[in-house]
């Protein structure tokens, strides 16, 4: 089966070690993570992982179920590029001298919708947001002007047909309200709290 880019969106509890558990499910199948982003979601204490792998549909189906088996994972979505809106962010460090000397650079940056973040005597930092193809094009151009350093973020994605997780969590809490604080039956008999 054909391998294509899939974006996984994983909603999880905020649990130490979960990132390595998730990564382990891929590494044991020798699947490379193209990129990985972990951030808070729209709900407090629930985290959102966004990761990209290049795999076949059948493998993805299996992976989604394996991921959902993790106790601290709420829900997992796997989407093709058509099903999501996605972006990455990139930062470029270029010698300020080269920019001043070259009027073309400014035009270039405008063309790519890049913004200036920092200007110093020695270097200037630009940022741009877009998909890999756009970012890579700008990278290629800026390389001609003595690019010092470049960094690109992981992919973040919004699923077109998704209501997020907010409603789901609210429903869950409704069906399983947090129990009242436990009333201890041994109010005055402290020793009896123990069964030992």
């Amino acid at each position: 089966m054909q391998k294509i880019e899939h974006t996984l969106t994983i909603y999880t509890e905020n649990q130490i070690g979960l990132a390595s558990k998730i990564a382990g499910l891929f590494s044991r199948r020798k699947i490379n993570l193209e990129c990985l982003n972990i951030s808070p979601s729209e709900i407090e204490k629930i985290f959102r992982f966004t990761l990209v792998v290049i795999e076949s549909e059948a493998v993805m189906k299996n992976l989604v179920r394996q991921l959902e088996k993790l106790v601290d994972v709420f829900i997992v979505y796997s989407n093709t590029n058509e099903e999501i809106i996605w972006q990455k962010m990139a930062l470029f460090k270029v010698p300020t001298q080269n920019i001043i000397k070259n009027a073309k650079v400014e035009r270039l940056l405008r063309e790519f919708g890049a913004n200036t973040v920092v200007i110093r005597d020695d270097y200037t930092i630009f940022e741009t947001v877009g998909q890999d193809s756009d970012i890579n094009k700008l990278l290629k151009e800026l390389d001609k002007y003595g690019l010092i350093e470049f960094v690109k973020s992981s992919r973040i994605a919004i699923i077109k047909n998704s209501e997020g997780i907010h409603k789901k969590v609210m429903d869950m809490e409704k069906n399983h309200p947090i129990p009242d604080p436990i009333v201890n039956e041994y109010l005055d008999k402290k020793n009896l709290i123990f069964d030992l």
Binding site: D180, P181, V183, L187, D188, K190, I193, F194
Partner: peptide, 9 residues
């Protein structure tokens, strides 16, 4: 029901 918890160290 009272919510008073009692505890032991």
């Amino acid at each position: 029901m009272a919510n008073t918890k009692t505890s032991v160290r």
